[in-house]
Design a protein around this nucleic acid. Structure first.
Lengths: 250, 250
DNA sequence: CGAGCTTTTGAATTCCTTCAAGACTCGTGG
DNA sequence: CCACGAGTCTTGAAGGAATTCAAAAGCTCG
């Protein structure tokens, strides 16, 4: 199925959070226009504002063009759990597609630009572009794996290692997604956000960060995350190596 | 897109964990045979044994015919996090499809019968049965929502409510999936399993269950879960009401 | 330049885990 | 049929981990 590929095009747009499609190449017959049908009117969302709220009927779907977003859920007790961090190229809001009401609140960590994707685009994709549909499906599964790992982290790993693993997961995604990132990059998350993502209080998030800094693994200062000792951090976090993606069945 | 549906068929098989397709009806043109192409050789797995292990290359995909399965991840420290409970009708092992290596360990909570689904079946589904592919996609998104809720539970909800919400989530799934279930049904999970699923120790799981029993919400005895006060349990757990699924875009 | 958000630290408290030990259950083999 | 052992359930007690409370200092943006 792979062998007949002659002309290829490289995409730089990722589909669904955390899945970068840069490495994937499409048969030319698929055409870049597959993606075009998925773009709609643009929308701006400035830092701290919301794209949609949990419980809202018929939420839109977005393709994040620039900036960082995060998705979160608020408990009846008023606590917030951040479930996903979205980087440019991510498809945002997909989980709610199978529901009548938005499953998550989507908020902007920085100023953002998004395309609003018409629902109809997906119907077209599934009817007429099976390869694209299959890739969308794979990226949804990839996202499930990410959530499974996050769940394991939050449920079973102590705070400092948890913070280490979480920072690493973002670091990895940013490195693939964004050009010119070295050991240091802008991380637009407050310590409150880090706590809400890893399931700990702000105070404890701060202490976890301090320990990581003191041990020389990584430090977060003025919105910049610097990884001082990458191998050490990986060993300390004990996070499983990401295995490569397999697309053979498509 | 919906209007031209004349003859319908009702399926009783669910696709992907937690998503029951009983309520969905297919256009007759889709044919039940769409499902046939997804069934392969059967395999038995007796209680306590494993269908596949985390890290194993090229794991199989399964359709669970009877029995209960669970998927889990083991941390470097040796702790286990149960990520999903699978009921009959569930598609099991999908998250690993996008990886070269199994993301989860799949183990049998009871004696089980599964069909092994050839990978090729999915390629066929996406190429030739777009409606089926779209439904598979939706169920993957549904599963993401379930994971998001579980993550929120584990990260942000105190132990007793967490246990209550977890039991409720299983109760709901069992009620839709299995015929003849009333307020009482066999729950093949040990307290260790409940702890591993909700991110608490066995001892604490036991205490959480005791409190739920003492307050008259629900009790788990000899492998049977009995919900004594459903409305009370729902209120106590504070779990968000499941909104209906929307399939309009297909 | 001041208000509000964020970061940081200490101290007290609460929640949860670990350890330990006894009771119970269930399947197995004598 | 009973005894045994492994796994499960249950409870108490001690210790550890994370939260909450509180307060000060730093930052940022209008």
């Amino acid at each position: 199925m792979h062998d007949d590929i002659q002309e290829r095009r490289q995409f730089t747009v990722s589909i669904a959070s955390s899945v970068l499609f840069a490495g994937l190449q499409f048969h030319d017959g698929d055409r870049l226009s597959n993606f075009e049908l998925m773009s709609g009117p643009q929308r701006l969302c400035s830092k701290g504002h919301f794209l949609s709220h949990e419980g809202e009927p018929r939420p839109d779907l977005y393709l994040l063009r620039s900036g960082w977003l995060c998705c979160s859920i608020t408990t009846p007790a008023g606590d917030r759990q951040i479930t996903t961090i979205h980087l440019p190229g991510d498809l945002v809001g997909m989980p709610s597609i199978a529901r009548e009401v938005a499953a998550e609140t989507i908020s902007a960590l920085t100023d953002c630009v998004v395309d609003i994707i018409p629902l109809e685009a997906f119907a077209v994709a599934f009817r007429q572009h099976p390869r694209l549909a299959a890739l969308l499906y794979m990226s949804a599964q990839e996202e499930r794996v990410r959530l499974i790992h996050q769940l394991t982290l939050v449920g079973r790993v102590h705070s400092v290692k948890r913070m280490a693993a979480f920072l690493l997961s973002i670091y990895h995604r940013v490195r693939v997604n964004v050009a010119g990132v070295d050991d240091s990059f802008a991380l637009p998350l407050t310590q409150q956000d880090l706590g809400d993502a890893t399931g700990m209080s702000v105070v404890h998030a701060n202490r976890a960060l301090r320990i990581l800094r003191e041990r020389g693994y990584a430090s977060l200062q003025k919105g910049t995350l610097t990884v001082h000792d990458y191998p050490g951090l990986v060993t300390f976090a004990g996070s499983p190596a990401d295995s490569k993606r397999s697309t053979a069945w498509i």
